[in-house]
Amino acid sequence: MRTARTLVEDTPRLALLSLGACIMLAPYVWMFFASLKPGSEVFRDSLTLWPETFYAVENYTKALTAVPLARFLLNGVLVCSLILVFQIAFAVPAAYALAKLRWRGREWAFGLVMLGLLIPYHVPALPLYVGAARLGLLDSFTALVVPFSISVFGIFLFRQAFRALPDELMQAARIDGMGEFSIVWRVVMPNAWPAATAFATFSIVAHWNDLFWPLIIVQSPQMATPALGVLFFRAEEAGNDVGALMAAAVLVTAPMIALFLLAQRHFIRGIATAGLKG
């Protein structure tokens, strides 16, 4: 019977889910409380959560000064937004041509996109690294951004979204005198907003959290993204100071979690639909 259960009937479900939730949240909880304690206290008794001596100011100051953590975060924001802008600029017109225009070679081109979907981004990494080294682009924003400027997944996702739009929409725009380029950006794109937000959340999460490529391409702390920054921080002397290390971890994790809590629905849909390829 599909009726609202009483709280008592719902208790086993809530208890089981809460138990799991505690395990899921454990690393966050300990991370956060350790970031409030002095190192000595962490060593003495890590089970107690609440700090005896409140040491947050010292820990967070150290996290921000021992390495340029603010710079890492800024780099992360910059890299992620540049990647997203490029990906959309490349993928959307191509997706439109694949979805709505008739031209010889379309099936063939879509075949290439599907082929691209099968290849994880780790595969071209090695030749791209060699190429970047030849061009003297190692340790640069260009090397961090350009390899991701084309997203086959983006093309695929937008193509599916555009196909669902009625042809009449474009025909009306053509009769109104719009060229194909303005149709893409002024008619098609505004009507594919759900796909765009889904893709944006997916792209931002993927590149904010990416470690593999920055680890390959970045050498100096000035260029590090947040993911790499954590490793730089640990490599510094400060890495032995658990409190400060946890403070640094909190600082780099917080922006994405905050964004997630603000736009939960978009995030979950974005990553669920984008599960196809990472």
Binding site: A21, M31, N209, A227, L245, T253, I257, F260
Partner: peptide, 20 residues
């Protein structure tokens, strides 16, 4: 949201938390 949290968290940072 709770179960989904690790998916959007910076894995390197959370690995550091796990290390602790």
């Amino acid at each position: 949201a709770v179960y989904f949290l690790p998916v959007v968290s910076l894995l390197v940072a959370m690995a550091t938390a796990w290390q602790y």
